[in-house]
Design a protein around this nucleic acid. Structure first.
Length: 812
RNA sequence: GGGGCUGUGGCGGAAUUGGCAGACGCACCAGAUUUAGGUUCUGGCGUUCGAGAGGACGUAAGGGUUCAAGUCCCUUCAGCCCCACCA
């Protein structure tokens, strides 16, 4: 026997992912029980394995194997095949990337783009370089363009002057560029492509009812807040001096008689018309000062424009101000300030000496005592000092006043969403090229279908100049307009890679289709997804985007379901030294080390053993050895006992009982809560019993135990269980076998152990046959010596008895 | 500022509905095997009093409900996450 007998079945983790993908997770269309499990784990093409991914993968893989053994048809899509990449396993195994240029460039980009901080993005973005996949991204984009769901407009973006590049919001750290911590980020207006996710805001919200119960409440709440629907009214305040009225959004039109000024966002378009040059400069300074900063740290500031607007209800002239706390991105970018009934307005107006005028009386209180105190901001109440509306309850007043505004043409009831349209333009080299051509005469022209996909040029220079590097590739940019044939320019922006992840699971169902994104019939077979597994960090990004895409695809007639996934499981993040593990923090733990030292079985089992899957786990290396030891114990036990004469059989009954108890425990856990750490602990307990009783187990019992062990370990340690399976002389993949059944009779203990308490404290234990009557239990408990000691000289007041479990004697 | 989650030994964590707190593993200690180390096997391992049998205390802190609370309720503290001037 070799010194470390388990070592020869240790296989590299990376190889493992391919091996599995190739052979065992192909869908079987004829299965009686179609089930679909999507995992967010894709195999890595390079040597970098992130421990967080091992976790995600191990959880999903254990479930997939279990479900398979339970007779489900499991689609366990593993990435590359779905994107039509060269599927040769050997290429991956030998760490030869499928497209070398891609990876080289990614390595270069890695140095300048923070997006790589997210391991999840890594595989997504690699996949994005594949024409076979982004062809269908482009197809979708053009379909959306046709329907007005994709559009182009000028928008403000973060800009770092030192990098000379656009930054995503996440790349702005405390108002400065993440790479230049002393360089404040500026706002620049650039032409950007957007998808109209706001058209679906109501549906995204309403359809959450279908997800109730299947998705974690926390994720639904986050999405609800993110979408942020609020009902209110839009009201026009006419300017005395110009033609264009200021439209404000308010949820409290009932307070409009208390509006003592109108405040514009510093970026408000009207500012260009009404502000002096100096004022415009101050407004711009406000915008710059605000970028990326913690709003709590910014004092409210503003200035009077010198102009006035008319309150259409009261006819009063109110001053127009510009305020840094008014957001252009929400509502209309202008508000009416009602300082008596809004804390923010109050803070602003008090600072600048603007009048405070209460108009809402609490139902059981007086009007506006000491404005500014918390109590002085009643939510709803009775409208006062408001002309014909005085005396009406807030809610009713809101309804009536909105209707009145609409009748008289100066406003209407309106719903505003917090969610904004999805800006998908990226000035990055890679990503799916946006398939349009800009023609000087025809305008924006879609790339005709037969010219798809638009492919990225391979030889490019990463300039870091802040414009897409594609602009410097004349062969890519200079094209003929498909409409008029005259010289035109190709769009150089690429798509956000969240596009790719928004529908990848549909593509998984039909990965090699080259005529359409997928065959709708196949989607109908597999969808909705029964169980989706992913990190909670995607609650409002990926998980909203993919819901949006699903609805768009449904409206395109491609699919029938409105939601992608019926159930969502959010696994906890992997934390290192108290901080979220990310490449930018440099605290990423590679799993390679773990896999190389102990092998794939140990690596995956260890991350499952560390904590239940929904829990955050602080990563530490110690402890992996325990799993390695355990697997060695299993292997040694099986190999040294199989084929032997066996022991007396005196412990068979006990061993069988433990075995069936263990199977029961695992089965229940897999069916309910996926606490794999306790599953593994259960198997360890079984092993401890086996070691203790080893000499007294018959050959037949050994055989049974070894077989069931292999089956139970299959979801967690596939290699070892396969090895045992073959040691047993059995053939084929072990997880093609049925999950072992447990016999409740065998699992049952012979006798019930009764806990005897006196005044709630444990004093004795007695063994009795199951079903012993209450009176008998009480008699036995009272008779126990140790109980006697504690009740001696005291009066027994009460006895609580739980059959087969507990007797509690209350004495006084 | 708003919303949510979590607090159990030296550490990761068990305890399914209120019913034996600390399963399982790590670390540590001791013993066996070994020339030694490593490996492997066996045993110990919350705090404290006691020679021992055994007792007392103990699940962030305080209070409550209950025969019985890690678990339910209230208050406080600490940590983490998400959103954040959303009119």
């Amino acid at each position: 026997m070799p010194e470390k007998p388990y070592d020869h079945i240790q296989i590299e983790l990376k190889w493992h992912t391919r091996w599995e993908n190739a052979d065992f997770y192909k869908a079987e269309e004829n299965s009686a029980k179609p089930k679909f499990y999507v995992l967010e784990m894709l195999p890595y093409p390079s040597g970098t394995l992130h421990i967080g991914h091992i976790r995600n993968y191990s959880i999903g893989d254990a479930l997939a194997r279990y479900k398979w053994m339970r007779g489900y048809n499991v689609l366990h899509p593993m990435g590359w095949d779905a994107f039509g990449l060269p599927a040769e396993n050997a290429a991956i195994a030998n760490k030869v990337p499928p497209r070398e240029w891609t990876l080289q460039n990614i390595a270069a980009m890695k140095k300048t783009h923070r997006r790589f901080a997210f391991s999840y993005d890594w595989d997504r973005e690699v996949s994005t370089c594949e024409p076979n996949y982004y062809r269908w991204n482009q197809w979708f984009f053009l379909k959306m363009l046709e329907r007005g769901l994709a559009y182009r407009k000028r928008a403000l973006v973060n800009w770092c002057p030192k990098c000379a590049t656009v930054l995503a919001n996440e790349q702005v750290v405390e108002g400065c560029c993440w790479r230049h911590e002393d360089t404040p980020v500026e706002q620049r207006a650039l032409e950007q492509w957007f998808l109209k996710i706001t058209d679906y805001a109501d549906q995204l919200l309403a359809d959450m009812a279908q997800l109730e119960g299947g998705w974690p409440e926390r994720v639904l709440t986050m999405q609800r807040n993110w979408i942020g629907r609020s009902e209110g009214a839009e009201i026009d305040f006419k300017l005395a001096s110009t033609i264009q009225p200021i439209r404000v959004f308010t949820t409290r039109v009932d307070t409009i008689y208390g509006a003592t000024c109108v405040i514009l966002a510093p970026e408000h378009p009207l500012n260009e018309q009404i502000l002096t040059a100096d004022q415009q400069a101050s407004a711009k300074a406000m915008v710059d000062a605000r970028a990326g900063r913690d709003p709590g740290d910014i004092a409210k500031e503003g200035f009077f424009t010198g102009h006035f607007a008319v309150n259409p209800f009261s006819g009063e002239q109110v001053p127009i101000w510009v305020g840094n706390f008014v957001l252009m991105g929400y509502g209309t970018g202008a508000i009416m300030a009602v300082p008596a009934h809004d804390e923010r307005d109050f803070e602003f107006c008090r600072k600048y000496g603007i009048a405070v005028r209460p108009v809402i009386r609490p139902v059981d209180g007086a009007l506006g005592v000491e404005p500014g105190l918390k109590e002085a901001f009643p939510d709803d109440g009775i409208v006062e000092n408001s002309g014909q509306w005085s005396g009406i309850a807030s809610e009713e007043a809101r309804r009536q006043m909105a209707a009145y505004a609409e009748q008289h043409g100066f406003g209407k009831a309106a719903v505003t969403f917090r969610i904004k349209d999805w800006g998908i333009s990226r000035q990055r080299y890679w990503g799916t090229p946006i398939p349009v051509i800009h023609c000087p005469t025809c305008g924006v022209v879609p790339v005709p279908d037969e010219q798809l996909p638009v492919i990225l040029p391979e030889q490019i220079a990463i300039t870091g100049a802040g414009r897409s590097p594609l602009e410097n590739v004349p062969s890519f940019v200079n094209v003929a307009c498909p409409k008029c044939g005259e010289p035109a320019k190709r769009e150089t922006d690429t798509m956000d890679t969240f596009i790719d992840s928004s529908w990848y699971f549909y593509r998984y169902c039909d990965p090699h289709n080259d005529r359409q994104p997928f065959d709708p019939a196949k989607i109908e077979y597999w969808f909705e997804i029964d169980q989706y597994i992913g990190g909670v960090e995607h609650a409002i990004l990926h998980l909203i985007y993919s819901r949006f895409f699903t609805k768009v695809m449904r409206d395109l007639g491609l699919i029938k379901n409105s939601e992608p996934a019926r159930r969502l499981f959010t696994q906890g993040m992997v934390i290192a030294e108290g901080a979220k593990m990310s490449k930018s923090k440099g605290n990423v733990v590679g799993a390679d080390m773990l896999a190389e030292k102990f092998g794939a079985d140990t690596a995956r089992m260890f991350v499952l053993f560390a904590a239940p899957p929904e829990k955050e786990v602080d990563w530490r290396f110690e402890g992996a050895e325990g799993i390695y030891r355990f697997l060695g114990r299993v292997y040694r036990f099986v190999t040294r006992n199989l084929g032997g004469a066996g022991g007396s059989g005196a412990s068979d009954r006990q061993v069988r009982r433990k075995l069936h108890q263990t199977i029961e425990k695992l089965t229940v856990d897999f069916e309910t809560r996926w606490h794999f750490n306790t599953c593994i602990a259960g198997i360890m307990e079984l092993m401890n019993v086996l070691y203790a009783e080893e000499a007294n187990i018959s050959a037949a019992a050994i055989q049974e135990v070894a077989e069931k062990l292999a089956l139970m370990l299959a979801p967690f340690a596939p290699y070892l269980s396969q090895e045992i399976w073959e040691e047993l002389g059995r053939e084929g993949p072990v997880f093609r076998q049925a999950w072992p059944a447990f016999d409740p009779e065998l699992a049952k203990e012979d006798e019930a152990e009764i806990v005897v308490q006196v005044n709630g404290k444990l004093r004795a234990r007695i063994s009795v046959p199951f079903g012993t009557p209450k009176e008998e239990l009480e008699r036995l408990a009272l008779a126990d010596e140790r109980v006697q000691v504690h009740i001696a000289g005291k009066q027994v007041k009460k006895i609580i008895t739980v059959p087969d479990k507990l007797v509690n004697i209350v004495v006084g």
